[in-house]
Design a protein around this nucleic acid. Structure first.
Lengths: 203, 203
DNA sequence: GTCTATAGGCCGATAGAC
DNA sequence: GTCTATCGGCCTATAGAC
């Protein structure tokens, strides 16, 4: 499924995905994408019109990858809150282990380009109407459910976002980092469920 | 302390700080820095030699701002673990409220430039030898203390890192976001202390 | 120290042959 | 569809006047 089986368009898209993710939109040269895809620079513009439009397609794919698989889990009417936490955690560690710098790419490029990405996926609507939010509200009506969602995302995603810092300051080597992540895969759902048990009356 | 009281060098540095933070190294044009500083483009090179060297100075300041104030708290021999959590949390929310996109800038630029930034501050040495690590190890010897440090940083920093996502997907408006942050200022230390109480035997 | 003017190189995009 | 060659603009950096 690698070599010749990919169409030219797919080869460009894959190369673009890698280079954009590594260097960001502004730091990427279309020449580098063309070289990595093994095609000519002119072909890139033939297929995608411009660097900007190529980037938009990559970003769309990345946003769907980052959020798409999670929402079905959070919106399942048949699973309990605790089961959702376990399943979402498992799925996220799986996605992020394969795509470690996916979240940093999406976040930092959204920050730089304040694009109208909310038209790709209406995250807020899906989120606000999801079953899990109802379940959290039932369990902890005194606290904005967004806190628990952010806690979950923070504990799961942050170690991947901060990986460049781990490397730069040599906090872990590559092996220790993977060990660390695989420990968190088990710990995070335990911690999240525990946080939901704490009553905090006096805000 | 604004207008004429700043030296030209300071004006350039402050303008550079703002533009680099907003657009990243690659997305920044030295012309924009010069314009924002109210000086001529040539002056920028007169004072700082190159865009690269100016960036390095800005980055050094940012890294110190992000970590410098925290380490003394974590290394204090006279405070308890719980007191350190309260003080570090307070200090971080203070720093990040004033510099909301500081962490995203530092992380994403470190990722792009894999610079030898560890020479600015030897974070790993300071971290490993800090008093708080000893205190965490005493309390939870079965778990790598890095997990609790990452939990703290994640729960504190992540909402600031992810702010562009909050905005892009309209999860909160500006007022709701500030309300959300001020709630976390109280909740995060409570949660962190609670996480330290959980025994997790079976890893 | 501060300015204007410009050199010099890089990069995105396209024209045009095959 | 795919290539080579090149245009035109932008951006960093510097030369040189004041």
């Amino acid at each position: 499924m690698n070599e010749q089986e990919q169409s030219t368009e797919e080869k460009i898209l894959e190369a673009a995905s890698e280079v954009f993710t590594e260097k960001g939109f502004a730091g990427t040269r279309t020449r580098d994408i063309a070289e990595k895809a093994g095609i000519n620079l002119a072909l890139l513009n033939y297929y995608f019109r411009s660097k900007e439009k190529l980037f938009e397609q990559v970003m769309k794919i990345k946003v769907v990858l980052l959020f798409g698989k999670i929402f079905p889990i959070l919106s399942n009417e048949k699973t309990s809150l605790e089961e959702k936490i376990d399943l979402a955690s498992e799925k996220y560690f799986e996605i992020l282990s394969k795509n470690p710098n996916l979240p940093l790419f999406v976040i930092s490029e959204i920050q730089k380009k304040n694009s109208n990405i909310s038209k790709i996926i209406p995250i807020n609507k899906i989120f606000e109407n999801s079953i899990i939010i109802k379940q959290i509200k039932e369990k902890r009506p005194e606290i904005n459910p967004l806190h628990y969602s952010v806690n979950f995302l923070a504990m799961t995603i942050f170690p991947f976002v901060a990986k460049p810092v781990f490397n730069a300051f040599e906090l872990t080597n590559e092996e220790e980092y993977h060990q660390f992540i695989s420990e968190r895969r088990k710990l995070v759902p335990i911690w999240i469920k525990q946080l939901l048990e704490i009553k905090t009356e006096n805000l």
